[in-house]
Amino acid sequence: MSDLQAGNDFWAGKRVLITGHTGFKGSWLSFWLDEMGADVFGMALAPEGQPNLFDQLGHESEIDHMLGDIRDSDLVAQRVTQVQPDIVFHLAAQPLVLASYEDPMQTWQTNVMGSLHVMQACRALSKTCSKTCALVMVTTDKVYENQEDGRAYKEDASLGGYDPYSASKAAMEIAISSWRRSFMQDGPVRMASARAGNVIGGGDWAENRITPDIVRALIAGQEISVRNPGAVRPWQHVLEPLWGYITLAERLWTSDDARYQSSFNLGPDMADVRPVQDLVKAALGHWSGTWHETPDAAAPHEAGLLSLDNSRAAEVLGVTPRWGFDQTVGKTISWYHAVQTGGDAPEITRTQIREFMAP
């Protein structure tokens, strides 16, 4: 038994399906749940690029790994029927704002129709199997109609989105609400959505995201190019929302309390809502380098200010931020630096989870 399971046997033997398990957050989540004794099943596209966290963790042999596209409704239904999950974490998505401008149709098909396929497959399973299934649908902080007026958005704020990514995730939230009210009230499937702020952490290698861009420049010994240093974001370590997802799933599975079957913001405290340049400067405090601004007048629109009100998650789930901004950046950069200098990625990841969970 892993020491991460000690004191919490809820996950031991639970059948857990994670869509998007080969991605950044999905890799951290599947690793963590496997360490806690869950039987983890995945469905996702192949991990993108080299390096990627899924391969760095060597997790393909540790879980029931399956490649598949959530846009294929029949394949999603087959996987759900095969797994017979106790708990489903739906993370599979097209997650990048800039990529959504390049291929808006694929973004909408994945984020909206793919999510509907997952919900419908779980609904169909409930008709043939009466056991409880907890379904955590992961969206984003960008689902709100962002006025950039300094407000921290609460869960009942108006949904919307300027770019195709944000709009598709807002549409996903509307679909979740519709499916929950139309088909899942008083049934064995209990569903909630989780709206996480900007997530950073070791092992994110995606294109056009600030932390991977910082690390790639530092590894190459190049100056960091920063597109929009004044953009303000709710930064948090990847373990923060994952702990929220895990807690939410436990509550959904063990209780039919309607408070859990709703939406939750998972973001940092307001003191940790910072501009991009603060993130860059903090990173350079842990790994020597330099940076410069490279504004692009032709770049597509991205929000300049975004923040979340996390009070509902604190009140209903008891989930509050554990690591502040400086610690979050330190843990993130130390992960990359340790792996880059020959450290063992699984053990470094395991150690950071232990540190996060320490009283």
Score class of each variant (00 low, 15 high):
residue 6 A to F: 13
residue 9 D to H: 14
residue 20 G to V: 03
residue 23 G to A: 07
residue 33 L to N: 02
residue 35 E to V: 01
residue 38 A to K: 07
residue 45 L to P: 08
residue 50 Q to D: 14
residue 51 P to V: 08
residue 53 L to E: 04
residue 55 D to W: 01
residue 55 D to E: 15
residue 58 G to P: 04
residue 61 S to W: 03
residue 62 E to R: 15
residue 66 M to H: 14
residue 67 L to D: 00
residue 68 G to E: 09
residue 74 D to V: 03
residue 83 V to G: 00
residue 85 P to H: 10
residue 85 P to L: 12
residue 85 P to S: 13
residue 87 I to N: 11
residue 89 F to E: 09
residue 91 L to H: 06
residue 93 A to M: 03
residue 96 L to H: 07
residue 100 S to H: 10
residue 100 S to E: 10
residue 100 S to K: 09
residue 101 Y to C: 08
residue 102 E to M: 09
residue 105 M to T: 15
residue 108 W to Y: 14
residue 111 N to E: 08
residue 115 S to R: 07
residue 116 L to W: 10
residue 127 K to G: 14
residue 129 C to D: 15
residue 130 S to F: 02
residue 130 S to C: 05
residue 133 C to S: 05
residue 133 C to P: 01
residue 137 M to E: 12
residue 143 V to I: 15
residue 144 Y to Q: 03
residue 145 E to V: 03
residue 146 N to V: 04
residue 147 Q to K: 14
residue 149 D to K: 03
residue 154 K to V: 10
residue 155 E to N: 11
residue 165 Y to D: 09
residue 166 S to W: 04
residue 169 K to R: 13
residue 170 A to S: 14
residue 171 A to P: 06
residue 176 I to E: 09
residue 178 S to L: 07
residue 184 M to K: 01
residue 188 P to N: 15
residue 189 V to C: 05
residue 189 V to E: 03
residue 192 A to E: 12
residue 194 A to Y: 01
residue 195 R to T: 03
residue 195 R to E: 04
residue 198 N to W: 02
residue 198 N to Q: 00
residue 200 I to C: 10
residue 214 I to P: 04
residue 218 L to M: 07
residue 218 L to I: 09
residue 218 L to R: 05
residue 221 G to T: 11
residue 226 V to D: 06
residue 231 A to E: 11
residue 234 P to A: 06
residue 238 V to W: 01
residue 240 E to S: 05
residue 244 G to D: 12
residue 248 L to Q: 08
residue 250 E to Q: 15
residue 251 R to P: 03
residue 252 L to S: 08
residue 257 D to M: 04
residue 258 A to G: 09
residue 259 R to K: 11
residue 266 L to T: 04
residue 268 P to L: 02
residue 268 P to E: 10
residue 272 D to Y: 13
residue 272 D to L: 12
residue 273 V to C: 15
residue 280 V to Y: 11
residue 282 A to T: 13
residue 286 H to C: 11
residue 290 T to D: 14
residue 291 W to H: 10
residue 299 A to P: 00
residue 300 P to F: 10
residue 309 D to C: 04
residue 311 S to F: 04
residue 312 R to T: 09
residue 313 A to F: 04
residue 318 G to H: 03
residue 319 V to W: 01
residue 323 W to L: 05
residue 324 G to C: 05
residue 324 G to V: 00
residue 324 G to E: 07
residue 324 G to S: 08
residue 326 D to N: 13
residue 327 Q to F: 00
residue 328 T to K: 00
residue 329 V to K: 02
residue 336 Y to A: 09
residue 338 A to S: 12
residue 340 Q to M: 09
residue 345 A to H: 03
residue 348 I to F: 00
residue 353 I to S: 02
residue 355 E to N: 12
residue 356 F to A: 08
residue 357 M to A: 11
residue 359 P to I: 03
